[in-house]
Each structure stands twice: as structure tokens, then as C-alpha cells.
Amino acid sequence: MRYITILLFVLTTIAQAEVTLVEVIKSENKMHLLDGDKVIKSYHVAFGGQPQGHKQQEGDEKTPEGHYTLDYKKEDSSYYRAMHISYPNAEDRAQAEARGVSPGGFIMVHGQRNRLGWLAPITQRFNWTDGCIALTNDEMDEFMTLVKIGTPIAIRW
């Protein structure tokens, strides 16, 4: 009975919390949902195949670093549900233009590739995306419930 009470307390606390920041720490393959300074949920995540460093151009398999916004949800993705990250920002576009390359884009927090969610226990052990941030499908459902459009996301090494 005590465990049920604790579980209900935890679920109620999460439900009452408001995610004010999504913090991503690439060097640890971690994503934290914060309400102020309090971590209310943490996930193990996967990134692009070349995770270290800031995304410089399309096709470099890097996940951007910096401060962005989660600006819209996409339910008809090639992956199980997705929320778009506002990369590239003006600075990203200017730096890419100075190098004569495309900055890339369409960077998302998303679930597993459609019809392959059952592989998540394996795929989430590797950095397998083209620069996105991947969760399991169950985690993606929770993420989409807890995180509102307009929530800031801070990504760092």
C-alpha cells in the first residue's frame, strides 16, 4: 500500500508541474524536464551519429547546441510523433552562409522510426539520428503530454 501511495504522489507531482525548460546534456545522453530549478523528469536520449560539437551544416549528423524553442508538434512524421526545435536561428543561418553551406534544419525531438519502436531497447544505446533527439515511443507520448509548444530548450555538450 505504501508503494501505491508513493507512486500516486509522484504521478500527481509530475502532473501538477509545468515544464519551463527542456535541458539536454549531449555528453551524458540525457534530457531533463525542469519546472524552475527542479528536475521533474529525466530521459536517456540518442543524438546524431556525430554528437560532439554544434551543428554546422546540413548532413553533418550533429545535434545543435544553444538555446532554441520547441515551436510545433508534428504527428505525421516518419518517426513516432515529433516536436520541432527552432534550429536554425539567425546566427546559425549567418554562420552557414559565411561558409557557403546550408545550415540544415528540421531538427526534432522524436520517437522511434515508424513501425520499428520495438527496437528501442537496442537503438537507444547508440547515437543513430541525423541530428535529432530521440526517445522511446512511450517516452515520446509522455514528453508530448508534459511539454507545451513554446517551451525553451537548452542543448549543450
Rank of each mutant, 00 (worst) to 15 (best):
I107G: 00
A90I: 12
A98S: 06
I153N: 00
M31P: 04
L21V: 07
G59D: 05
Q50M: 12
T151E: 00
P121C: 09
Q124L: 10
A15H: 14
L21D: 05
E61W: 12
Q112G: 00
A96I: 10
P88L: 04
Y68D: 05
D35C: 03
D76W: 08
G100S: 02
A82W: 01
T129D: 05
G53D: 06
I122K: 13
H44M: 13
Y43P: 11
G66C: 09
Y43I: 07
K55R: 06
M83C: 06
Q16N: 11
A17Y: 01
N114P: 04
R113H: 12
H54G: 08
D130G: 07
Q16S: 14
D35R: 00
R99T: 06
K38T: 15
P121I: 06
F47V: 03
G100F: 03
R99H: 09
P64A: 04
A120I: 01
E97G: 06
A82L: 01
A96E: 02
T145Y: 10
K30W: 07
A96D: 02
A96G: 05
T145R: 14
W157A: 13
K55E: 01
P64G: 04
Q50C: 11
T5Y: 13
V39D: 13
D35S: 10
L21F: 03
A98P: 04
Y43H: 10
R113F: 12
A154P: 06
Q124S: 04
T5H: 09
G100N: 02
Y68R: 10
F9A: 12
L70P: 00
M144N: 12
T69K: 03
G49P: 07
I107A: 02
V24H: 00
K148Y: 00
L8W: 14
R113E: 14
P103N: 10
I6E: 13
E75Y: 08
S102P: 05
L70E: 09
I153A: 00
L8V: 14
E58P: 09
M140L: 02
Y72I: 13
A15I: 12
A120W: 04
K30H: 08
I25G: 10
S27I: 06
D92K: 04
G49T: 14
H67L: 14
F9E: 06
E23I: 05
G111P: 03
E142T: 11
E97I: 07
K41R: 13
M83Y: 06
I40P: 12
K30V: 08
